[in-house]
Design a binder for these strands. Structure first.
Lengths: 337, 337
DNA sequence: TCCCAACCTGACACCGGTGTCATAATGTCG
DNA sequence: CGACATTATGACACCGGTGTCAGGTTGGGA
């Protein structure tokens, strides 16, 4: 299997390599006859352009980086799925890069990543989507980026999010409609903007339905299963015990469920539990968790697609979209007795 | 921020760019004085070589591809973690590529991937690790590859595995020692070589302890949670009901647990349940699952490291390693009453 | 002192594409 | 039919590195 380069194609077709390049890139100013001829040679020789050479000539890598620092593996794979879909459609590659939000070395870490990999653009996933230091750095360096699931629309970048506040509102309202008035809440990780959004939705629902906010019902978690266990302990120890718990994500909700079950409480008869994210675990446990499903793949795919467009056409306008989240009711929530 | 290239470094240091290249690559035949001088300029100008140009010159991409077709997201992220660790140490990038094992287009899909991305090598994860058609294709095309968690050591490739058969033996023996004699088994996906390995370990344990094999206790699953539900139904409907269930992975074990709980069975008092893989769900549910932990990250990291070495030094000998799996006992298994 | 090997170094072509520009071919209009 | 705009094409440099090879230095042994 000998290599087929643009030169072999050119000489085989009897044209210059520049003309071959024109055909490759669908440039104008090529006669139909020539174009046909070259295209035929492409097939005959089974030619595939070398992206590395192309990258060198255009000073591009055709690589999009995706950074994350997220405990939820299912979330990460969903993000990857969406990003990959967009990349494949556009002949880009995806470079995944887990890293520490809190490490002091974050910026230099990212700088090194960009330097060494020559990324064309970066996708920021939570909790990076709203991490000002990083965003400012990218802006200053003029590195194209897109933000996934960010809390704020800033009118100057590519940003695709879903409505966490509304989702939290709806699931809280769902509990209220089931007759619950004492609803505990477990917060997420303070670095994630979703944490505040979800809490706000909870508060708004209480407020809308005239239920007084009780600070003692709120626990600080960090989205990890483990933190959920700690929060669950505090909540289940309360006297009187709340009749429902809304955890900011499904892992923490699963932890509440586990502890409640250990303590011989019946879910949902004795206590209702709701989560957020519709992670796989939400339907892998019994009872299944009532939760909020977000279109993570969709968000990411849109963000990456727009990012790639932006790289090709830098003057492109910002792109700001909010997609809908959806309430999914399962067995873990029920009418209060 | 203007670009720093090998040319600027060369002229700044007052040497030829070839000499700079020599320093970059730690080649011999550079005087210490010159080397020092160039290294100092690297720092002063904050020079980072362009991997794309280097790739073009050496006809390499510094990209390793990782293909998978696996329902377990936690497994995939563990694989990625290990692969990334090895890549970062060697300045390689990781390209992830989910694809269908069963699709007729698999080979042409992979061929296209290799053609367009110019991968330097490929990591095969289950179920591809033992997929003969693909392995033969890669061998014929002379694409370097490494196999992770394959069933067989073939003495001619890079292959890092853990001992699934032994793991299954140990967990079955664990159940037997707890007094169980009627132990149901749920098989994995037939495309995965682990499926047979784990089944063999189960059989060997029965045999070793003089327990007669009962075909009716075996169900066909496919590693998915959903298949576990179906298998669980059949098993729990058996009369007499087995006193223990060993599922070939944790998702299916979780499904058994869910169904058993729905049916008011106490685990482990009424029935013991064991899984395999030590997936996160094994400790996120109550009772926690007794299972087998494999060093997935380690396996993958070793495989990728060897693969990269092999790419650099193609004459390198094959590398065949088997790592140990470890029994983890949790609350889902107990002494029979 | 001379010779040759071992060590340094740089000139130059090359990897496989793309950008620029000059030139040739074709078309349009008065 | 001539002047000029438009389209089609190729020559050549260039992207930022590496491989080859030739030439210059240095050092040790005869």
């Amino acid at each position: 299997m000998k290599k087929v380069t643009i030169n072999s194609v050119a000489s085989y077709a009897g044209v210059s390599k520049k003309t071959v390049s024109r055909v490759l890139n669908n440039e104008p100013n090529v006669s139909d006859a020539t174009r046909e001829k070259v295209l035929k040679v492409f097939k005959e020789l089974d030619y595939t352009p070398n992206p590395i050479a192309r990258g060198l000539a255009q000073n591009r890598s055709f690589i999009i980086g995706c950074i994350y620092d997220n405990p939820s593996k299912s979330y990460i794979t969903r993000v990857q799925t969406g990003a990959l879909a967009a990349c494949q459609e556009n002949n880009y590659n995806l470079l995944i890069h887990p890293c520490d939000l809190r490490g002091d070395a974050l910026i230099s870490n990212i700088e090194h990543l960009i330097q060494t990999s020559r990324l064309d653009g970066l996708v920021l996933t939570p909790p990076f989507s709203d991490f000002k230091v990083l965003v400012d750095f990218l802006k200053a360096k003029k590195i194209p980026y897109a933000r996934v699931a960010s809390a704020v629309l800033d009118d100057e970048s590519i940003s695709v999010r879903s409505n966490d506040e509304q989702g939290a509102f709806e699931i809280t309202e769902h509990l209220i409609r089931l007759g619950h008035k004492s609803i505990a809440f477990i917060k997420g990780h303070p670095d994630h903007s979703a944490t505040e959004q979800r809490f706000n939705g909870y508060l708004r629902a209480l407020n809308t339905h005239g239920i007084e906010f009780n600070e003692r019902l709120v626990e600080e978690g960090n989205f990890s299963y483990h933190s959920g266990v700690d929060s669950a302990r505090s909540i289940l120890d309360l006297n009187p015990r709340p009749t429902a718990v809304f955890a900011s994500n499904d892992y923490m909700a699963a932890a509440v469920l586990k502890l409640a079950t250990q303590r011989q409480l019946k879910v949902p008869d004795d206590i209702s539990i709701a989560g957020f994210d519709n992670a796989p675990i939400a339907r892998h446990i019994w009872p299944g968790l009532t939760t909020i499903a977000q279109p993570v793949e969709d968000m990411t795919k849109q963000a990456v697609t727009k990012l790639i467009e932006h790289i090709a056409e830098p003057q492109e306008a910002p792109y700001q979209v909010t997609l809908e989240a959806r309430l999914i009711t399962r067995e873990s929530t029920a009418q209060i007795k």
